[in-house]
Design a protein around this nucleic acid. Structure first.
Lengths: 415, 415
DNA sequence: TTGAAAGCGGTACCAT
DNA sequence: ATGGTACCGCTTTCAA
């Protein structure tokens, strides 16, 4: 394996000069430059990242940890993260934690050992235990989608409480009063937040919540199917199902089909998170779509700021609005996309995000703030997002109850 | 950041002893062992992978390079790769090459620089140029899905020629005679192979091929949409569309819908590769489904063998059969899943794959051979695959023409 | 059974 | 502008 020494010998210069050349710091004469370039080409030299990283304690690796890479919500986030990371010379490596704390922990240790420059995590949930080493080693970290109680880090997330409330209101507006909730793992904040939204919407509509219609477990399709089957077997009456995410919806759908129940004629269905490719094939599922690409984009942006030390303040929190996409499964007459957006909210255009981050350009918050100020309603673009709130030096992650209370207190202008 | 030295001091032993302890090689007294364990725990020590890799020239990283991580075909492959890698103590990092040679090249260099233990690539296509450094640096490499002319490496791929021929035969059997082919990038072997299959089926049915109905370009949805729109605008008559993969099908579908054409009533549609989640939501697309999970599984298995030096022979090639899943889009009366399988082919059961690879257990070929011998027709399981052919010391990747000729010469027992 | 010491392949400071 | 030279943190003989 060719080393810097081989290049130096071949080019007739010292290792120091070669080092300066490849790292781009320090002076190298045009003459030496040419000879080194030639030597590198000839022997096919690729600098050893381990040797370099050992010395510099830096790497060009960004780690993204997701619970389920097969879910398009996370692959879309990945694209967002990757696009801005690459633009800044960073490469992204993905770890699939499979909703398993142990796998997450293993990846975290691997990432630390690999000296990654930063980490973005959609955490498995529950405790901060498996992520704790990141804090201890001071690895720049940004949370995405899922908040973790007591884990002090920047976060980009969806407006789960409001989003789920709106989704529930949609079903309520169609006349449903017995709405089953197929939730995910209550150890994850999103599950608790979405349940809070569900409860809030029902309360507002003065519909009593039947706890027997609410189930939770884990985020796997099979589990949602089992729980839905059990619910159907219980004989408890209900006319609609609200699934806490797209995978839960698939599970519910399986159970419904197995019983021969037609959607939406016999049971209506809606869920959080879109499945873009499925929608392309056949617009069926009514969903609360989150701006996943933008979430990835903003998370990476915040991470870059932390990594570069440009941001030394407290915990930041960016909440992006999701939007209701009405399709067939909920049984609405007018099955057409609808953009939810509160007065005073603003869109983050793809163009702005692209401009963002180049040297000296605005930070994630700047962009978000600008977007907030410009209430602009344009056509649907996947890279768009609507900022619901931005908190600088935000309070530590609070309990769901608190979040729900705040959300309830915030006026929304979309209904 | 805690180092081995800190642990040594705290435990009252030398660095060497700590090193022996964490690497598991060499003797360490129970006494020292206990003190080291405690020290590691106390200071939260994680060995620096860079320092270790620098010395050992090894890492526990496997790189998987895919052209489009958003495509479920590749995420499913990822799951297969990851499952066997993890079982052997390796972690997988994914690079999304975005169908771009330059990105692929960049990832390859990064992987080499990072001293990955092995690489699995679904290549962007065209030349072997961007992968060439892998050969030069002797990084164990396995190709998946896409063959590369002149790149000498083990490969796991689908039976593209036969599969596409069968898919075309399905449309022919429904009475279609003017079948448009929306292909992908002809620089990739799969595209050429699938076109060969299309041509073969038409030739066998004595249907003249109308080249004006065949389009190619790249593998992006937008491109397929554009080409399909152009075809529709041309006025050239056709009654069905065969898409070279799932993304091409989405593009074609967009174009059809934009023109208000109903599928399958006005135009029938079928494609290679499934979109599992879409099918779960609504069984619509008739597809030639590939055993993606198994492809990942076998690729990783072959890679482990190369990495361990257990396999020093020539290039190996494993070809897995795909199977026809008839759904609504092709307009067939009996829209139900059908398992295609030639006499003499065998299933690889999930159980066998799991057993495979533990020390001393059978190699990828052994498993495949055993499977070939056991013609067992069971129920559909996603981890199953059907082996079409296994070649040991296979000839270098040949031209499509040659492959098509061979395929035509090989008797198949499924019709 | 343990410790001393020599690197692995770069980087970066300090002279020249 | 360039070269000499200590490391970075861990592994691995080799001696004790």
């Amino acid at each position: 394996m060719a080393t810097i020494h081989d290049v130096a010998t071949r080019a007739g210069v010292s290792r120091s000069t070669v080092s300066r050349f490849i790292s781009g710091r320090g002076y190298v004469s045009p003459d030496a430059r040419a000879r080194i370039t030639a030597a590198i080409e000839e022997i096919g030299f690729v600098p050893n990242a381990m040797a370099r990283g050992l010395k510099t304690r830096r790497s060009s690796l960004i780690a993204l940890l997701v619970p389920e890479i097969v879910n398009s919500f996370y692959t879309t986030i990945l694209r967002g993260v990757e696009d801005v990371a690459n633009r800044h010379g960073f490469q992204v490596i993905v770890g699939n934690t499979d909703e398993t704390g142990a796998k997450e922990r293993a990846y975290v240790e691997l990432m630390i050992a690999s000296q990654v420059a930063g980490v973005i995590v959609a955490a498995v949930g529950g405790t901060a235990a498996s992520l704790e080493p990141l804090l201890q080693k001071r690895v720049p970290t940004v949370l995405i989608d899922r908040a973790i109680d007591g884990f002090e880090a920047d976060i980009v997330k969806g407006d789960n409480v409001d989003g789920m409330a709106e989704l529930a209101r949609h079903l309520l507006s169609l006349g449903h009063r017995q709405i089953a909730l197929v939730n995910g793992d209550l150890a994850t904040a999103v599950a608790r937040e979405r349940e809070a939204g569900y409860r809030r919407a029902l309360a507002e509509a003065e519909v009593a919540v039947d706890d027997a219609l609410i189930s939770s477990g884990d985020w796997f399709i099979d589990d949602a199917e089992r729980r839905t089957s059990a619910l159907l077997a219980s004989g408890r009456p209900f006319t609609a199902i609200l699934a806490a995410n797209n995978f839960m919806a698939i599970g519910a759908l399986r159970a419904l089909r197995q019983r021969g129940l037609r959607v939406p004629e016999e049971i209506a269905l809606a869920c959080f998170d879109d499945i873009e490719q499925a929608a392309e094939i056949e617009p069926f599922l009514t969903v609360m779509a989150q701006p996943a690409y933008t979430m990835g984009t903003l998370a990476m942006q915040m991470l870059l700021e932390r990594m570069g030390g440009h941001e030394r303040g407290g915990r930041r929190e960016i909440v992006l609005a999701s939007h209701l996409v009405i399709r067939r499964s909920s049984g609405a007459r007018d099955a057409r996309p609808v953009q939810s957006g509160a007065v005073g909210n603003g869109r983050i255009a793809a163009a702005e995000l692209v401009a963002n981050g180049d040297d000296g350009s605005p930070s994630a918050e700047d962009v978000a703030v600008v977007a907030l100020a410009s209430v602009e309603r344009g056509k649907e673009v996947s890279a768009f997002g609507t900022v619901t709130s931005i908190a600088k030096d935000a309070a530590p992650n609070r309990s769901v109850e608190g979040a729900a209370r705040d959300a309830a207190a915030t006026p929304r202008g979309d209904e």
